[in-house]
Nucleic acid binder design. Structure first.
Lengths: 163, 163
DNA sequence: ACTATATAGTTAGGGCCCTAACGACCGTCC
DNA sequence: GGACGGTCGTTAGGGCCCTAACTATATAGT
């Protein structure tokens, strides 16, 4: 995810330029990037990456599953899951076993050590999320979440039409 | 930037859990990720990465500058700039020359080929940004941008207090 | 002058993400 | 029971991002 700088004259350079739309897109990416970076820094002392933390959470909440299913939930390719699980396995937070029902497949499950680190991770992140969002009144927070949902729908839909 | 899945019972797992705050953070990252991914796909046929496109834009709008300054504007480390500029230079979109005023430094500038690809890139992206954001009424778009700014301020400030 | 400190750009090493291609295996249809 | 199309996980190769360390050069202070 790239960091952003908005040149003063970024707009009005093309027929379709729209200041507010560009600003919204850029700011969204910029804000997410800031949040993601903070989260990654908070997790570093725990020896987990942000992606690894998500995987641990899914495994704890949904139980053991195949790398493919994990990829589906993370919205990430199977190839990417291979790498993240490799890393978690090296640290002993996760275990891979063959799937008796399908000899092509594997089953990934969280270990006791993984459960411990997951609890620490969630405590830490939830505390900070609360602080970060405390500048927004309850109503505004709700509107914000709703707007994000509408943007997601819009982008997903637009992508379906070939262009 | 990781993709997100929100487990049904992600909340109330820690003393400080706050559903709305978590949801806002997750959704922000998720939305940005979606946008970033679409942009990267749009740019692929042009043979430019999203980061590369940003660099070209900065160089065109602000003129030639050192890799360090470029890093400052992108909010990225010098080491990262080395890689992005390497890639842009391989494609002929950018040129590195020694800085006569400081023998440690370099000056990066955009080439004619870079200008061509930049114009195509902006036309393409601006058209899509407009479409993506067209679901939001003008007032809501303004509120959204304002909320993003407040979150950024909040996160930046919170980070300054040691924790 | 000379040394101590700071800065420029690079490299090395690690993480995450993607696409493409591969071997192994599944299931189905003839 | 064999052939085929689909899926599983992995690897190879490319891109971006970071931190730490290194070389070369600049500059401030003695």
């Amino acid at each position: 995810m790239a960091k952003i700088e908005m040149p003063d004259d970024f707009y009005a350079q093309t027929p379709d330029a729209n200041v507010r739309a560009t600003e919204a897109v850029m700011n969204t990416i910029e804000t997410a990037d800031l949040l993601f970076d903070r989260i990654a820094r908070l997790l570093r002392p725990l020896n987990v990456s942000a992606a690894g933390g998500l995987v641990l959470g899914i495994l704890r909440d949904r139980g053991p599953m195949s790398p493919s299913e994990l990829g589906g939930r993370l919205i990430v390719t199977r190839a990417t899951v291979t790498g993240v699980v490799d890393s978690l396995e090296r640290r002993g937070f996760v275990r891979r076993s063959p799937n008796p029902a399908d000899r092509r497949g594997l089953v990934v499950e969280i270990t006791p050590a993984g459960l411990v680190v997951l609890q620490q991770l969630r405590t830490l992140i939830h505390r900070h999320e609360k602080i970060w969002m405390s500048v927004l009144p309850e109503a505004e927070l709700g509107d914000y979440i709703e707007t994000l949902r509408r943007i997601q729908d819009s982008v997903s839909t637009a992508a379906d039409e070939r262009d």
